[in-house]
Design a protein around this nucleic acid. Structure first.
Length: 413
RNA sequence: GCAGGGAUAGCGAAGUGGCCAAACGCAUGUGACUGUAAAUCACACGACUUAUGUCUUCGGGGGUUCGAAUCCCUCUCCCUGCA
């Protein structure tokens, strides 16, 4: 019996979309849901109470980052992730697999697939000479980005770290590939990710057994589907992992909303229907959410809403604005008049603009509350629209207003 | 009054004969950010401009020189000593 139970309550005919809930030892997540980014056991700039008040249902932390600081053992000693950070609702941890990519291949290059592919550079397909991570079939050797210490991470060690950290839902150790990786590298990487998935699951089960023996709560593990933009690889990966006894699945290696309607569709057409599906790292913009849900995703996580908030880029229902722009100096209206967040209820654009220009910490706080609430609220409405059948109408109205009719067309076909 | 030091683009501050429209920092403007090396990063920042283009600049004025922010003279203002 898995430590998490997924129930589908509504499905949207003719699509892969569903609404439901994931029951965990720390309460249920109503899906589709946005999982708030809490990489280092903190949602940057926000207290857990603020995250709770803006509607956050769960938080996702990162194994690699916590391993370095403060150390998985310290988190364990502090009562596990939730207790340590004073978050009583469900928690996830990512395996560190993404850091294989971000500190490896993508080191100092970024992952902007569009700009790279337009240049046709193909840079991301080769290893950077300065990268901090080196991948072998056994695992990954990292140089700590904090102090240069050499570290090794394997599927087994990632599982051990995640069990020490003690989130409700863990991710298998995988290798995220570049959007520019060619079939040859993808093949090699996919085989490795599958091998790692098996090893992750085996180690995870072993650790759960130990938990049972000690009368401790068990944890859940999601397998991660890779395969780049190749349909056969994606379907193969979903098929293979789908037959393994994971509690749910993550879809990794997706970088743009435009990929969702095919890559995510291939995967979710293939994966078993009754297990939850998480789209890793996507949710920076409304299109990600609408398309993800439409093509069968239950949960999302993304650091962009809080990161962009700290950098002054704020969501409004008619598109993104940069609150640092001079035009907001005398704008005494809320960030968005239709937003119900704490920031919009009490503060003006002029004031938030001032906080950013003056480099005051509260600016990051208010902006983070707003952006996170905007995304959470949007996914909440998407869930409601699945339940009352208004999904397509809502999607069309929302995206037209957010992107403008011309751009929105890309996501409405 | 005497001796010495200084005045550079919005601010601070390099530069001391040509590679100077002038380093760098700040401020300003704009853009980016998708499993967080990100409260970060990129670009612009004298004017006009499509410009490797033209024009006007380095306290004011006058010189030397093929060429001056840089050398000389002089004026103005500021700082530090001594009277």
């Amino acid at each position: 019996m898995s430590s998490v139970q997924f129930t589908i309550t509504h499905k949207l005919d003719g699509t892969l979309a569903r609404a439901g809930k994931i029951a965990t030892p720390h309460g249920s997540i109503q899906t589709p849901a946005f999982i708030v980014g809490g990489t280092k056991a903190t949602v940057k700039a926000l207290t857990p109470q603020q995250v709770d008040e803006l509607g956050g249902q769960a938080v996702l932390a990162n194994t690699y980052h916590l391993m370095l600081q403060p150390g998985a053992a310290v988190v364990h000693e502090g009562g596990g992730l939730g207790a340590y950070m004073h978050w009583s609702k469900p928690t996830f941890t990512d395996s560190g697999g993404f850091q294989v990519f971000s500190l490896g291949m993508a080191y100092k290059k970024g992952i902007d697939a569009t700009s790279h592919s337009e240049k046709g550079s193909g840079d991301l397909a080769t290893h950077s000479t300065h990268q901090l991570a080196k991948v072998t079939d056994d695992g990954v050797t990292f140089r700590s980005h904090l102090d240069g210490t050499k570290l090794t991470m394997t599927p087994e060690s990632s599982m051990e770290l995640q069990h020490a950290i003690g989130a409700d839902i863990h991710m298998a150790f995988d290798e995220a590939t570049s959007p520019l990786a060619g079939r040859q590298y993808l093949r090699q990487s996919l085989d490795r990710t599958h091998l790692w998935a098996e090893r992750s699951l085996k180690q995870h089960n072993k650790l759960n057994e130990q938990h049972r023996e000690h009368d401790e709560p068990e944890q859940a593990l999601f397998g991660i589907v890779q395969g780049g933009r190749e349909e056969d690889y994606r379907r193969e990966s979903a098929q293979l992992l789908g037959h393994m006894d994971f509690d749910g699945y993550g879809v990794g290696g997706v970088y743009e909303p435009g990929e969702i309607s095919h890559v995510v569709r291939w995967v979710n057409e293939t994966l078993p229907e009754h297990k939850p599906r998480h789209l890793l790292g996507m949710g920076a913009q409304p299109a990600d959410l609408f398309l993800g849900v439409e093509f069968g995703i239950d949960t999302f996580d993304c650091v962009a809403p809080t990161r962009q908030a700290r950098n002054g880029a704020l969501y409004t229902y008619s598109g993104r604005i940069n609150i640092k722009n001079a035009r907001f100096v005398h704008d005494f209206t809320p960030i968005d008049t239709n937003c119900d967040c704490y920031t919009c209820q009490h503060f003006t654009r002029s004031y938030v603009h001032h906080l950013f220009k003056a480099d005051e910490i509260l600016g990051a706080v208010l902006a983070s509350i707003h952006n996170e609430r905007f995304i959470v609220s949007t996914i909440d409405h998407i869930r409601e629209s699945l339940m009352d059948g208004s999904f397509y109408a809502y999607k069309q109205t929302f995206l037209n207003q957010y992107y403008g009719a011309a751009h929105a067309k890309t996501y409405l076909s």
